[in-house]
């Protein structure tokens, strides 16, 4: 058995490549969004007025703050303060769960109004509005899945930190998880204005 070598730069490079693929994955959806916005800008305008800017804005603040805690947790571990690192990670996970709860409330309200993929109500709306909601569910849904994955990853990293597998001298797993989390945050920062503000 060959001993696994530690390659800090390699691990970071691999992570960045993975993040590129995530950007491209969402890129396909952004492409669809821009094409349909161009075609149905009035319908998009009407449909977007039904989205709750307050809930969306609150989620934006939650996610940005969680990214801040994430960054602090890495610094804490680099300074050798494991307890503080764990506390900050727990805060990050909590905020991620808060984001998801908020999102669930928002989706639920839409469902209550008969707005969900394939619903009668949605079919009766102008086609551009149906496309808008399809994009809304596809993009925030895919993003939500990424947040959920983030909760899983960060919880797993917390276990690794507790067990000392991730520590002051070897923190690349924590750092890469942080990169992932910032990307999830960044994607939301684009989703928020596209759906809630600019139409």
């Amino acid at each position: 058995m060959i001993e696994a070598h530690k390659d800090y730069a390699g691990a970071k490079l691999g992570m960045w490549l993975f993040l590129f693929t995530e950007v491209v994955l969402f890129g396909g959806l952004f492409l669809l969004y821009s094409a349909y916005l161009h075609r149905y800008h009035l319908d998009f305008h009407h449909a977007a007025r039904n989205l709750d800017t307050f809930l969306g804005g609150a989620n934006t603040i939650i996610l940005i703050t969680s990214s801040f805690f994430m960054a602090m947790s890495i610094t804490a571990l680099q300074l050798g303060r494991r307890g503080r690192c764990l506390g900050l990670l727990a805060l990050t996970v909590l905020m991620a769960l808060g984001f998801l709860a908020n999102k669930a409330i928002e989706w639920w309200a839409k469902f209550e109004h008969g707005i969900f993929p394939g619903s009668e109500h949605l079919r009766a709306l102008p086609q551009g509005e149906e496309i808008f909601y399809s994009l809304y569910f596809a993009m925030t849904g895919l993003h939500g899945i990424h947040v959920l994955l983030g909760v899983g990853i960060l919880s797993f990293v917390m276990i690794l930190v507790r067990r000392g597998r991730v520590r002051q001298e070897d923190f690349v797993i924590l750092e890469n998880s942080g990169l992932y989390w910032h990307l999830v945050d960044l994607i939301w920062i684009f989703l928020f204005p596209l759906f809630y503000l600019i139409t």
């Binding site: 669809l32 094409a35 349909y36 075609r39 149905y40 993929p117 394939g118 079919r123 102008p126 086609q127 551009g128 149906e130 496309i131 399809s134 994009l135 569910f137 596809a138």
Partner: peptide, 14 residues
């Protein structure tokens, strides 16, 4: 599967 409409021309898709 989820009945989302993004490409279906009958639902405004292209």
């Amino acid at each position: 599967v989820l009945n989302l409409g993004l490409f279906d021309p009958g639902r405004g898709g292209d």
